[in-house]
Design a protein around this nucleic acid. Structure first.
Lengths: 332, 332
DNA sequence: TGGCATTGGGTAAACGATAACTCAAGGGCG
DNA sequence: CGCCCTTGAGTTATCGTTTACCCAATGCCA
């Protein structure tokens, strides 16, 4: 069916190896005339390389496989993939994305993708968490994206939540805010770390948080749990320690804070500055005024992951913290 | 490096073909004892099939490739992929997703993915549109998802927008609403078809639309253009033909309509019923009250696409309209 | 003119799995 | 007792590419 090197060879009247050299072997010594002639024939016949055949010799397909713990549900996943793809493409590698789906058996999914003989395999989580990889899999995973290896052996790329918390809190302080509250998502690793950075920054400035409150009753990433935001904001604004800034565990919480502040008639940022985390595009520019927030380094994580997966020698395992970026908008 | 059938064969003291039969040839006649013994050895050695090698004989890799016009930006893409994946998995096929990215050269991307020798290749659009495929590619694309082939030769799976418009409008009428306005997204295929169905349904009921208005000044899918919704809703509610229902071009517009109605003090659904299209999960349950809307058949499209791509003989090209589903919530 | 790089290209052996053959042993049946 | 059929398994060719090795022709220099 498909055109092979052999087909081209017989038409050109040369051997298969010559055709191979002409089309793929960049440095192979060969008469330019021959090379051009072969290229032209290949073009006319519509030849496309057969990666499967090539991989028989090479040992692997020009693929980087990513095992995701969920399907690409979040808009962040898009950014990770984009970073991966951009970087991999430069090395003529494709990114093959799989998900552990319903069965949640990493080892099985690992075997499944191995059948394609990818050059390297990475593991990606949809939100920042700790992951325990089965032993037989752990030392074959080249990199973990947006999650940290509980055992600490696999190189893990995660956002530097704590630094982000510090940066945004300092930004609020620098903007002259002195009474800062934090409405956080409880039970999430990201939230805990952000809060730690927040507290440290206030401490550095010689301030105390006005309040640190949970946004929901029970934490889930999808946070379907009933929101407490309106109630908390109402209490804060009516109480004795009225904040002049509210830092939110993420942009979604900020969205609810906006609604709650509007309800009590407080102006943003004149009465209360609001800031968030994530830079979730759907939300951030849609809010009025647009939200100042810390942008997650998802694309950078993808890019760096691809680089690590392409490397001949995997780097020493360990945690790599990638910096958020402060995005200043009108809410502060 | 990796374990091969040969490795297993030498340990088991049998030929390679016997091992192949034992592990893969389901129906091959063979002593159960031999089969079990070989399977056990394979297990111990951690054997995983080499798809590349297999594909040398079969002619294709167990892959379905999807070329997307954009990266999986929208939450809908997730649903399409999920449908594809579920269905393909049953036939032991994987789904390989690529995107035409920046260069927008379909033919080049087509060649790129062909190098993996996928079983079949589909084309998917992120939102419902018409697509012109280059001729040399068109007859090798097995199915088009969420877009229609301008030439009408490739089987195209698209949501039945017009029927959805008719259904939701009829639903509003059945709920006793008589003064219905439509705030639509201008310039989009989906919007035009939805509006057509809307008008037909009202016509069937002997009604006239109170108004049909554009949600934004200039249409783009991302609709960054400045929204007109608040202004329109304000005018409508203050004007002489006060609507008792507002149908929205999609759920996002409905979100803005909610805000606008709240601003003028109108209750949902008591004063005005609101309905949308898409069933965009982020929005629909977050609104208060939850939004009645028409759910896009994305997963069904994915599922059907996988079936078509797996079929030995592609069906006669043409447009297949997939029905939306009415999701009743408290906004009507 | 003989020796020796250099250039251009051919030969053949892999890679791993499969499938069309082949073959040997044993059992049933006339 | 001989024949054929069934069962179980081995042989070998093959898919498309790459690569290690080899060969022939040419040109250069001593």
């Amino acid at each position: 069916m498909a055109v092979s090197l052999q087909d081209i060879a017989s038409i050109a009247g040369v051997s298969v190896k010559t055709v191979s050299g002409a089309l793929h072997g960049g440095s192979a010594r060969m008469a330019e005339e021959t090379r051009d002639r072969i290229r032209k024939i290949a073009e006319e016949l519509g030849y496309v390389t057969n990666f499967a055949a090539r991989s028989m010799r090479q040992g692997w397909m020009p693929l980087i496989a990513i095992i995701g713990d969920e399907l690409l549900t979040s808009p962040f996943a898009t950014e990770i993939i984009r970073g991966l793809d951009n970087s991999a493409r430069k090395a003529d590698l494709s990114v093959f994305f799989t998900t552990i789906g319903g069965d949640h058996d990493i080892a099985k999914v690992y075997d499944d993708v191995s059948r394609f003989r990818p050059r390297a395999i990475g593991y990606a989580a949809m939100y920042h968490k700790e992951v325990v990889l089965p032993l037989e899999v752990a030392d074959r995973i080249g990199v973990m994206i947006n999650c940290r290896d509980a055992a600490g052996r696999v190189t893990s790329l995660v956002p530097d939540e704590e630094a982000a918390g510090h940066t945004i809190a300092s930004h609020l302080v620098d903007a002259g805010r002195r009474s800062i509250a934090f409405i956080n998502l409880p039970g999430l690793l990201a939230g805990e770390l952000r809060e730690r950075g927040f507290r440290a920054a206030l401490d550095d400035a010689g301030l105390e948080p006005v309040a640190v409150l949970p946004a929901v009753k029970r934490a889930t990433y999808a946070d379907r749990a009933r929101s407490l935001v309106a109630q908390h904001v109402g209490d804060l604004m009516a109480g004795p320690h009225r904040p002049d800034a509210i830092l939110c565990g993420n942009d979604r919480v900020a969205m609810e804070v906006y609604a709650a502040l509007r309800k009590v008639g407080a102006g943003i940022p004149d009465d209360v500055a609001v800031a968030g985390f994530d830079n979730q595009v759907d939300i951030v520019t849609r809010l009025d005024p647009p939200l100042t927030t810390m942008a997650l380094p998802h694309r950078a994580m993808g890019r760096m992951a691809a680089e690590i997966l392409q490397a001949a020698e995997p780097p020493e395992g360990g945690l790599k913290l990638l910096p958020f970026q402060l995005v200043e908008r009108a809410s502060v």
